[in-house]
Amino acid sequence: MAAFLRRAFGFALLAAVFAVALHALLMHGLRSRTTDVFGVWNDVVSGRATADVLFTGSSRSLVHFDAAAITSRTGLRAYNIGMDGTQLDLQLGRLRTYLAHHPAPRLVVQEVDIISLEPDSGLYFAQQYAPYLREPAVYETVRRVAPDHWKDRWLPLYPFMRHGPGLTALAVQGLLGLEDTLNDPVHLGFELRDWPWEGSFDNFLREHPDGMRYHESPHAVATLRTLIRTARAAGSRVALCYTPELVENQRITLNRASIMGTFAQVAREEGVPFWDLSTAPFCGDRSFFYNSQHLNARGVAHLTPMVADSITVLMARADQSPSARP
């Protein structure tokens, strides 16, 4: 029996060493990526995304705020850390991670939308978090949303088992420098989605002929307040921004007034501006959108000057009244 245990233990030890080494190597590959979502994460955790204006939020932040265009219009360095498929909890985690690795930006623009106050319903594209679970803020929020992600953090190679060969392929690409940098759709955290109208909204309309009501979770409201206070505590100004949304969707949202009222109330009570850009005239025209919530390239081109002007005005006011610092 002793011989068997010795042999089994010896092999298990070898396998464990092998697994830990391979895990470290593959994670290094993911952390070496410069494109797609991993590229943005790597900018965030390695202090390469220093900005005067930081955009944060969900996919509507990701695809609406063209950081480079804002920079050229305002003269302020901008970066976008908006994340696809996320609610406020995860956005707060990402902001905290950003602040842990960067000087505080002068302005944080927090994107809000009609589903911002919905409770978290899980991780979208969960593999993106795997290389960054050693970041306390990331780990804490990911665990809250998906408790069993402790396995990704602590078990060697587990993320590659859970998320499949796709993640391994990305890691190997990163290790060997084989990324397709020429066709990367993400630049300074902004992803240009010049997609045609996709039609999902028409199905949505058919499925909800009597309109749609969205949740207003007290936890989400509290998280929004925490997010604002976190940024302000770091020394940043904050603005809430409701980016353009197709008017047809606004009309079928039964509790839209209540949700907008909540955003306005939070902004008022926290002393930050609330920019509602969903009243822009082009919100009635589908040709500016690829679905009811997201602008295409044409829409972003129309939105950018509006956002840039709002930023310029806000920063000018701030510069004129230094006593009004956050």
């Binding site: 092999f11 070898l14 396998a15 092998f18 697994a19 190679l157 590659f160 088992m161 859970r162 499949g164 060969p165 391994t168």
Partner: peptide
């Protein structure tokens, strides 16, 4: 032998459906 075991384990980890 152990290299073969590790190879099979690696296939399980990286090519398996978990």
């Amino acid at each position: 032998r152990w290299a073969i075991y590790l190879g099979v384990l690696a296939a399980v980890v990286f090519a398996g459906d978990h």
